[in-house]
């Protein structure tokens, strides 16, 4: 701060001291030759109130609205500028203690209580991230994830689809080390079935996938992988059902077994042919039902009209091949 600034501030303080509102008003009154009684009469005020105004005892006047109002009117009848008197009052009022018990707090901290700062944006960021994850999951899977699928291990969702078809891969060539699958856990029902059927064990694992001549090797491998995933233990293979899907037009297809595992979950292209095998009942969803021919264990299946919704269809395939609602 320079010497000039210091001197300016000092002069302002001296001026403020010299222009106390009471002194200004009482000086003007004396110059006009008015008595306090006359001022009180003009303003409809008590003599005590006029004395308080001239002696700068503003706390005796109650709230600031009354003090300012009376000062303004007093200044006007004295021919003074109300702004000058009120400025002097403001300087004095700033040093007065704040009135106690006021129901109206200062508004300076108004935004802090509502928290207009960073935490709002933090919540907004969380919401945006959560929405983004939800949209990504829906768009990538088409459905919400099912916990039982995740519990089955990574092998189910990591079926590799080779970019180049592996040549001369016969169905019998599929080995467990190609697609590692976890050991299926047997339920009580399955154990009992196994006990009954173990008397006459299956001579060899049946070929789960039947590929046509025009089916590529890659498709065969995928189908094998899907079939292997969904293949129950050898003892229960007698309960499997084989479903052949022939696509005359592009159609989305989903087939799940009773445990919710996806046996097939992809877009079938026109001309494709897919064969899956699984434990019934199989839950089937077709995106374009008229574009898919279905054969269950060699028997053509007609999707009933009541299972169709527009171009889509939802139904189940039991052992006898009779469609029924999944719900």
């Amino acid at each position: 701060m320079t010497d000039k600034d210091e001197s300016t501030g000092l002069s302002e303080q001296v001026e403020a001291f010299q222009s106390l509102p009471g002194e200004l008003l009482s000086g003007a009154r004396r110059n006009r030759g008015w008595s306090r009684e006359r001022v009180a009469q003009e303003l409809n005020l008590d003599l005590e109130t006029v004395s308080a105004l001239e002696e700068d005892r503003f706390d005796a006047l109650g709230a600031a609205v009354f003090a300012r109002g009376h000062l303004r009117k007093y200044a006007l009848i004295m021919g003074l500028s109300p702004d000058t008197v009120l400025s002097a009052y403001d300087a004095v009022a700033a040093e007065l203690p704040a009135p106690t018990g006021s129901p109206a707090p200062e508004l300076a901290d108004a935004s802090t209580r509502r928290g207009g700062g960073a935490w709002r944006w933090f919540i907004a960021a969380l919401v945006v991230v959560a929405l983004g994850v939800l949209i990504w999951r829906i768009s990538s899977n088409g459905d919400l994830p099912e916990p039982d699928i995740a519990a089955e291990g990574p092998g189910v969702l990591q079926v590799p689809v080779p970019s180049e078809p592996a040549l001369s891969v016969a169905p019998q060539a599929v080995k467990p080390d190609v697609i590692p699958l976890p050991e299926p856990t047997q339920t009580e029902d399955q154990r009992s079935v196994t006990t009954e059927t173990v008397v006459e064990p299956a001579p060899a694992p049946p070929t789960p996938v039947v590929g046509d001549d025009d089916t590529t090797a890659a498709e065969i491998e995928v189908m094998q992988a899907e079939a292997v995933e969904s293949a129950p233990p050898p003892a229960v293979l007698t309960d499997t059902v084989r479903v052949e899907l022939v696509f005359s037009a592009d159609s989305w297809v989903e087939v799940r077994d009773p445990r919710g595992r996806r046996l097939i979950y992809q877009l079938g292209r026109q001309g494709d042919r897919r064969t899956i095998a699984g434990e019934p009942p199989l839950r089937v969803f077709l995106g374009f039902v008229d574009g898919v021919g279905i054969t269950v264990d060699g028997t053509p299946l007609q999707v009933p009209a009541e299972r169709r919704l527009g171009k889509t269809a939802r139904f189940t395939i039991p052992l006898d091949g009779t469609p029924a609602s999944r719900r």
């Binding site: 609205v65 009354f66 300012r68 109002g69 009376h70 009117k73 109206a104 108004a110």
Partner: peptide
């Protein structure tokens, strides 16, 4: 009776609501 005019009388109602 004495009568005084509030500061910024036009906005008193809205400011009071804010308080």
């Amino acid at each position: 009776l004495p009568v005084v005019i509030a500061d910024e009388p036009l906005t008193c109602v809205a400011r009071g609501g804010g308080k």
